[in-house]
Design a protein around this nucleic acid. Sequence first.
DNA 1: AGACAATATATCAATACTGATATATTGTCA
DNA 2: TGACAATATATCAGTATTGATATATTGTCT
Lengths: 105, 105
Amino acid sequence: MLSPEMNMKPPKRKALEAAGWKVGTVKEFLNLTDAEEAYIEMKLSLARELEETRKAKHLTQKALAQLLKTSQPRVAMMEKADQSVSIDLLVRALLQLGTHLRLAA
Amino acid sequence: MLSPEMNMKPPKRKALEAAGWKVGTVKEFLNLTDAEEAYIEMKLSLARELEETRKAKHLTQKALAQLLKTSQPRVAMMEKADQSVSIDLLVRALLQLGTHLRLAA
DNA sequence: AGACAATATATCAATACTGATATATTGTCA
DNA sequence: TGACAATATATCAGTATTGATATATTGTCT
């Protein structure tokens, strides 16, 4: 997870602000540029797509790992869009699953 | 990494045919899977997008390299979708240029 | 509760990617 | 043609990513 504030629902946020806390966005908190934010969001989208696709095919992480010729722990990292996972890896995994991906301007 | 055959440079199809060879598609010749082919095409389209964007902004490779904090030779490789260039690098470059990349699954 | 399957986390050696440098080639214009 | 700008190619050290292993945690049963 990037930071606790990320999952904060509006009510909680209001409460914090009432208590004197200044709560900004995760992006502000981490000093992310627009490009960095877009990159992370793209990775998160791919990760979610991978997990959804796996579940739609009724595969465990272990079974998917065998299909992709990698390990269950790496699949877990992929689905969490871990920092150690590249967009390349996610894209290749989805393409191997037959997903018709389009990544364009 | 993709299969080893993918590192092969595209054969000169015309030359082969002129010499009497019957050849199929590059994909067949290199034994590319659908996934490998899709991966390459995605990289190529990102590379083209980068070059077009650079030219639209009237930048030389050297100038773009400075913007991206890399070198002119690397920009040349990126625009050629060289095997040493990842989709990650291309995506980050485009995002830094303000390109709004869309991901369609 | 215990037993088992599924998922998550930590670590690390091997490999792949990246930026940089040097150099070569190509393109343009006087 | 020569001089110069732009682009391309080769190489390599530093870094990041990858697959694997071991282990821990979580979830789902009876």
